[in-house]
């Protein structure tokens, strides 16, 4: 099984990779990718089913706070049934989206405001080093530069410092981060293609 999975991964990866550089493999690449996106969708569905299983077990075992798990399972199944019956774009499903999903997520995101402020205030109490100092300085500059006065942008900060910091200094670091991430991704992908890493369960 380990050899089979490794062979599958390497073969599929090689053919998909060849599709980037050779038009001869574009069709096979598209076909494989089409299969892959279907499998990815099924994997997401399997994740939902796994969530049902986990919380269903909690309910059956009457664990602590299992009432919340019961609420979760019930709401999940009910929504799924509604979605299957009505389809997601149905008005009722839009009510669920706009009345529950979006407000909850947005509110949680709004609560992050206070949390971020709290963390920004307390950061330098925990550690005072170069990175933290520049972190706070750049954040404060962006805060201040993003604000405006009744008369317009804050002079110098909003018109010069903030753009210079975000488009030059921050872009230097961000580009370094992106290149670093890309290099790491490249190496990881190569290791998978060479069979060194087998995150699919081979080893």
């Amino acid at each position: 099984m380990r050899i089979l999975t490794a062979v599958i991964a390497i073969a599929v990866g090689s053919m998909v990779l060849l599709g980037y550089f050779s038009t001869s493999f574009i069709n096979i690449q598209t076909l494989l990718l089409n299969w892959a996106i279907i499998l990815a969708g099924v994997a997401a569905l399997a994740g939902v089913f796994n969530l049902i299983t986990v919380h269903g077990n909690k309910v059956r075992q009457a664990e602590k706070n299992s009432i919340y798990s019961a609420v979760l399972v019930i709401s999940l199944i009910a929504t799924f049934i509604l979605g299957i019956i009505l389809r997601p774009q149905h008005a009722v499903m839009q009510v669920i989206l706009n009345g529950i999903i979006l407000p909850v997520e947005s509110t949680l995101m709004g609560l992050l405001t206070i949390t971020l402020l709290y963390a920004g205030i307390r950061l330098l109490r925990r550690r005072v080093d170069v990175m933290s100092i520049f972190f706070i300085i750049s954040a404060v500059i962006i805060f201040l530069g993003s604000a405006t006065l009744p008369s317009g942008d804050i002079p110098l900060i909003g018109t010069l410092v903030r753009p210079w910091l975000s488009q030059i200094w921050a872009m230097g670091g961000a580009r370094g981060i992106l290149i670093g991430v890309a290099l790491g991704t490249l190496v990881t992908g190569l290791r998978v293609l060479f069979g060194v890493e087998r995150p699919y369960g081979g080893k």
Binding site: I121, R122, I136
Partner: peptide, 9 residues
Amino acid sequence: ATVLVGIGG
């Protein structure tokens, strides 16, 4: 945020 993070920091 500027005040809190700047002064508080």
